[in-house]
Design a protein around this nucleic acid. Sequence first.
DNA 1: CGGCCGGTGTGAAGCAAGTCACATTCGCCG
DNA 2: CGGCGAATGTGACTTGCTTCACACCGGCCG
Lengths: 242, 242
Amino acid sequence: MPQDKTGETRAFPNSKLAVLRKHPIFCDLDPEALDQLCRYAKHSMLKRGAAIFSKGDPGNSLIAVISGTVKISITSADGRSAILNLIGAGEIFGEVALLDGLARTADATANTNCEIFVIDRREFLPFVRSQPALAMKFIELLCTRLRWTSDQVEQVILQNLPGRLASALIRLTEKHKTEPAGRTIAITQQEISEMVGMTRESINKQLRVWATRKWVRLEHGAIVVLDAKPLQALAEAGSEGD
Amino acid sequence: MPQDKTGETRAFPNSKLAVLRKHPIFCDLDPEALDQLCRYAKHSMLKRGAAIFSKGDPGNSLIAVISGTVKISITSADGRSAILNLIGAGEIFGEVALLDGLARTADATANTNCEIFVIDRREFLPFVRSQPALAMKFIELLCTRLRWTSDQVEQVILQNLPGRLASALIRLTEKHKTEPAGRTIAITQQEISEMVGMTRESINKQLRVWATRKWVRLEHGAIVVLDAKPLQALAEAGSEGD
DNA sequence: CGGCCGGTGTGAAGCAAGTCACATTCGCCG
DNA sequence: CGGCGAATGTGACTTGCTTCACACCGGCCG
């Protein structure tokens, strides 16, 4: 299927390169190395809901998202599930299992229709060794992830519903910091509830309270943050007030 | 556990070397490099309760524990605190801020009287660059940490008190896997409660229930796990039963 | 157009865990 | 030994969040 020669293959020979070049991990690589990496990458289109990998699978690949978003989540024995992260276009995921070779720690599923590419561990590891700077980049990535995850633990243990919800909204607006004002987050309340680990009903009730105060506006499958300041305050306040 | 019977006891020029040589991160370094690292390391004794660093501090060092245990925790505005990890003899901590140069994400305090040594970022980073294998070791360490922390998020979001407590006990026994049977964990109930994010009273009541079933035995400042199997089952069961 | 499904909004009732307020026991140290 | 502080044990009351049971609304699709 991949008859890569000089760049002419299927639909998106350059989109891979574009994603890699834009990503902080790979942006400093020389063009030749980038090109080689592109040849390793297998392109793939996914329908919403498609499973990419599951918790416990052997972790043999690194995945980059070209378009759409991917949901990283875990599901308990009794069916409740928690969303650990949402990966958007231009981001990569699956690096932990790629790097240490152990099982995947969570499930990854296409949250929208997605375009991704996959780099195999067997090809990638030697590549990393041939590019010492890359190891440092991965260290930075892992540190970032660790900070994010520690933050989550902190939120979940120390904060109550309003605090956690506020934190989640702040984090989400910071990710899509496209427009400075009028932050619209495309997400369902169900999804938010799974990110903060509380029920949809509770989340909805809290959001309504904030809507009457003009802190947020609720739309279909989206939340617009109108005034981030009081939310920021709540996020930092431990477990006070609402 | 560290029996200092023979010559190398209090003077410690060698204990540094011993700790480094035993640690998975450094064990593969050649003796010369180890020696150099030892010269960088500043030795220090701490009384129980002493602060090593605080959340938000600039992260300029890596710390290794020679004896005693160090508590990694966070405290919210209203005084509640959560223990993220306990670092024992032979382990290292503070690597995230060391590696990415940003602020510390949590507080570190001596949980018992401690003997530690400290390696400065300015000296350590060039050293890492001179030892490419070391970067890979750090990647592995970070992956391990990330798995641990993700696990914590999973526990806290998906499990109820019995599940979380059981998970915590299992984790703790696995850390000190000294004797196969008769796992004694030296920890106060207050500390456990801060690790699982619930109150001491609730923890105590649950532990008593298990004690009557002979799953655990409670001692002063210690818990003995008598039968790990039912606990293991609970830890994996999501949020069922007790 | 009408049906239906996924997302949203809301109230009543239940319960797991927190809070508070103690009593008890242990181990250390003067 | 005796006393004091830290760790443990326990019950009565409160509460924040869940559960359950719905009604509504919008948008897509045959």
